[in-house]
C-alpha cells in the first residue's frame, strides 16, 4: 500500500471510529431522554418527572379495566410495580387486558396517571389465530397439570406430617 493510500485509509478509519465514539458518548449521556416511555418501576422510584408530561408503558393488568362511559380506568404494570391510569377517549383496537401499551400524560396529586393519549404496543410475534389458541390451551393444560402436581405434593406432605 502506498503511503498516500495508507494515510487516506487511516483518515477514513479515524473518521468513522471518532464519530462512532462521539455519538456513543452522546447517546449514553442522553440515555434517559432516548427512552420513549418510563416503566412503572421507574415511576414508583421517582425517576419520572413529577409536574411534567411524560409517557409510561407496560402491560394492562388483567381484570383492572373499568369503563365509565368514555372514561376508562386501568392499571399498567411491569409485573413488579404498577401505575393506575385514567383516560377519556377512543382506545386503539389492540387495547385489551394483558396488552402492552404506552400512555402519555401526567401524574395527579393522588398518584393516578391522567393520560391524554394511549398507544398500543404490539409484540414481535406473528402467528395464525389457530396457533395462538392452541398455544393458549397447551399453556392452560400445563398450568393445570402443575397445579395438580403441587396439590398432590402438598397432600402427600400433609399426610407425612400427620403420621
Amino acid at each position: 500500500m502506498t503511503p498516500k493510500r495508507r494515510r487516506r485509509l487511516i483518515f477514513a478509519v479515524l473518521l468513522v471510529s471518532g464519530i462512532g465514539t462521539a455519538v456513543a458518548l452522546g447517546a449514553y449521556a442522553f440515555r434517559q431522554n432516548l427512552f420513549y416511555f418510563y416503566s412503572p418501576t421507574q415511576v414508583a422510584e421517582g425517576d419520572a418527572p413529577r409536574n411534567h408530561v411524560f409517557r409510561v408503558g407496560g402491560l394492562v393488568e388483567k381484570g383492572s379495566v373499568k369503563r365509565d362511559g368514555m372514561t376508562v380506568h386501568f392499571v399498567v404494570t411491569d409485573t413488579e410495580k404498577s401505575v393506575p391510569i385514567v383516560y377519556t377517549g377512543i382506545l386503539p383496537d389492540l387495547f385489551r387486558e394483558g396488552q402492552g401499551i404506552v400512555a402519555e400524560g401526567r401524574l395527579n396529586r393522588s398518584g393516578e396517571f391522567v393520560a391524554t393519549q394511549v398507544l398500543a404496543k404490539h409484540d414481535s410475534t406473528y402467528m395464525p389465530p389457530e396457533v395462538a389458541r392452541a398455544l393458549k390451551r397447551a399453556h392452560e393444560r400445563e398450568a393445570a397439570a402443575a397445579r395438580a402436581k403441587l396439590a398432590q405434593e402438598a397432600a402427600r406432605a400433609a399426610g407425612a406430617g400427620g403420621r
Partner: peptide, 24 residues
C-alpha cells in the same frame, strides 16, 4: 433493544429463532 421504544423488537433475527410462523 437499547431503549424502550413503541416499535416492537426484532422478529426474524433474534435469540431462539424467528418468532413468526413459517407460512408468514
Amino acid at each position: 433493544e437499547w431503549w424502550h421504544t413503541l416499535h416492537q423488537g426484532p422478529t426474524v433475527f433474534k435469540l431462539g429463532g424467528p418468532s413468526i410462523s413459517l407460512d408468514m
